[in-house]
Amino acid sequence: MKKPNITRRPTVNAPQEVRIIGGQWKRTPLPVAALPGLRPTPARVRETLFNWLGQDLTGLRCVDAFAGTGALGLEAASRGAAEVLLVENDGALVKTLTALKTRLKADALRVERGDGVAALQQRRGQGLDVVFLDPPFGDDGNPALFNAALLAARQALGDLGLIYLEAPRAWTGDELAQLGLQLHRQGKAGVVHFHLLQPLPPQ
């Protein structure tokens, strides 16, 4: 007797996760909530980024201004950063990030609910070492948000600091120069362009 064909339906709301790829919390899973626009930075992109930044971030002060899953900021804290601020607007994500901080006993980590641009503006002139920017892309690419975030990050950055930027397109040297920045490294993964930026030297 022929067995009937059974179509297996995919599990609805199956839990998803990414993992920290380096440092003291290597392989720690980070939950990924099913929220519109939430795009955790892929492991291979994070691996490239931390090859650029260096594997040891001991003593550095960092801000992950659109934290989401916290993958970027947690990678920095895992690799020895002295201070890492995770800024996130979504209350559920903030709760998850706070629970992760407690579970990992991550003393260097602070979680703050709020707007990423405003958080950077409040830290103007503080000489941060690394700012991570992965703003929501939106249907139109959110150009105003990207400009505001880059300008606020530049003003919070130290002279030798670096900005990591994920965006739906590559940013040009002329655009960055208007914000006091220049391109240091650049890559592409799928539809996402990622950049490592540094301040323009004083004229």
Rank of each mutant, 00 (worst) to 15 (best):
E88K: 04
G127T: 01
L57W: 11
T98R: 15
A76P: 10
A144P: 04
A148E: 08
G158L: 04
R124F: 05
C62F: 01
L128G: 03
K105N: 13
Q55R: 15
L57T: 09
P135Y: 09
N142Q: 14
D129I: 04
L145W: 06
R124G: 02
R61N: 09
A67P: 10
A108M: 13
V84D: 10
G80M: 10
G158Q: 07
Q126T: 14
L120F: 08
T58Q: 14
R110N: 06
F146R: 13
N147W: 11
R110F: 02
L72P: 14
R123N: 08
Q55E: 13
F146Y: 15
A99K: 13
G70E: 09
G91D: 00
D139I: 08
L120H: 10
V111I: 06
A144Y: 07
V84C: 12
R61D: 11
T98M: 13
A76N: 03
S78V: 01
L150D: 08
V87L: 07
P136L: 03
D56I: 11
V131Y: 10
F137N: 09
A118G: 00
G138Q: 11
V94G: 01
V131K: 05
A118R: 15
R154K: 14
L60G: 02
A153H: 08
T69N: 05
L151Y: 10
D64V: 02
C62I: 10
A119T: 04
G116D: 01
F146E: 12
A99D: 14
R79T: 03
G91R: 15
F137E: 02
V117N: 11
G80Q: 12
A82I: 05
E88D: 01
R154I: 03
D56H: 14
A71K: 12
E75N: 07
G116A: 05
A118M: 02
P135A: 06
Q121G: 06
Q55V: 07
R110T: 08
L100F: 11
L120T: 01
A99C: 11
L128H: 04
T69H: 06
T96N: 13
P143R: 13
L150R: 09
K101T: 07
Q55D: 08
E88Y: 00
V63A: 04
G68Y: 06
L162K: 14
T98Q: 15
A99L: 13
F132H: 00
K95L: 01
